[in-house]
Computed example of a mutant assay.
Amino acid sequence: MKTYSFTQEERLKSRKLIETLFREGKAFSVFPYRVVYLPATLPADKYPVQVGFSASSRHFPRAVDRNRVKRLGREAWRLQKQFLYDHLRGQSRQLAVFLIYTDKKIAPFPVLHQKISVILERLKKETGQNPGKI
C-alpha cells in the first residue's frame, strides 16, 4: 500500500531517542544534508522509520528560512520514503534518522528531491549489508 502522508508517528520527537541517535548513531553526508541514523526499536510499529529535520540558526537567522528548508526536506522525504519503508519492512527492521541541512543557501526543491533520493538509496544499502549486526 502506497501512502504519501507524513504522520505524527513518523516524526522523530523523543528527546531520549534523539540523544541516543547522536551519541551512538552512524553518519554520512550527501550535500547539503548530514544524515545520522541508528537502528532502533520505535514505539510506533506501523512505521519502520522515524525521521527528524533541522536547519542551523547560524546559517539561517530568520525562522521563516529555517522553516522553509525543513518543510522542503519533509516534502521530498514524504514523496519518496516508500522505497525505504518497503525494504525495512521486508527485513523487520526499524530506523531512527535525522537530517541536518548544512548549506548556507536554500536549495531549490528539485535539487533537494534528488538528494533525498540519494540518501534513501544509501540508507537502504547500509541497512541491508549486515543483517546480523543491525
Rank of each mutant, 00 (worst) to 15 (best):
D65L: 11
T102I: 13
G128V: 05
S54G: 12
A76N: 02
G52H: 07
S14L: 08
I106C: 03
A76Y: 02
G25S: 05
E24D: 15
E126S: 08
V49K: 02
L38A: 08
Y101D: 08
P48S: 04
Q91T: 10
T20D: 15
L21E: 05
I116V: 15
R93C: 03
T3D: 14
P48E: 09
A40Q: 05
R74G: 08
R23P: 02
V118N: 01
S57M: 08
P131A: 08
R11F: 06
I18R: 09
F53E: 11
I116L: 06
Q91S: 13
M1T: 13
G128I: 06
G25K: 00
K105I: 11
K16M: 08
K104T: 14
D45A: 12
G73E: 08
V35Y: 06
L84W: 03
R89I: 00
A44M: 11
E75R: 05
E9Y: 08
K70W: 09
R15A: 12
R62K: 15
R74H: 11
F53C: 07
Y33E: 02
S92Y: 12
K16N: 13
V35W: 03
V64K: 08
K16D: 15
R15K: 15
F60P: 00
G52M: 06
E10A: 02
S92N: 15
L112T: 11
Q8F: 11
F6R: 01
I100N: 14
K133N: 14
H113W: 06
E10I: 04
Y85C: 05
L42R: 09
I134T: 12
R68G: 03
E24Q: 13
D65C: 06
E126K: 12
G90S: 13
R34Q: 13
A107F: 06
E126R: 14
F98M: 11
P39T: 03
D103G: 06
E10C: 03
K70Y: 02
S117G: 12
P110N: 08
S5E: 14
P48N: 10
S5M: 07
A40R: 01
Q80R: 11
A44E: 15
N67I: 03
F6Y: 15
P43R: 10
L123M: 07
R62H: 14
S54N: 11
K105L: 12
R71G: 10
V69H: 05
R71E: 10
K46R: 15
I106Q: 01
R66V: 04
R58F: 13
E9Q: 13
K124G: 08
V36I: 14
V97K: 02
K2H: 15
N130G: 09
T20K: 14
G132I: 07
L12S: 11
R15V: 03
V118R: 12
F22I: 05
H59N: 15
V36F: 10
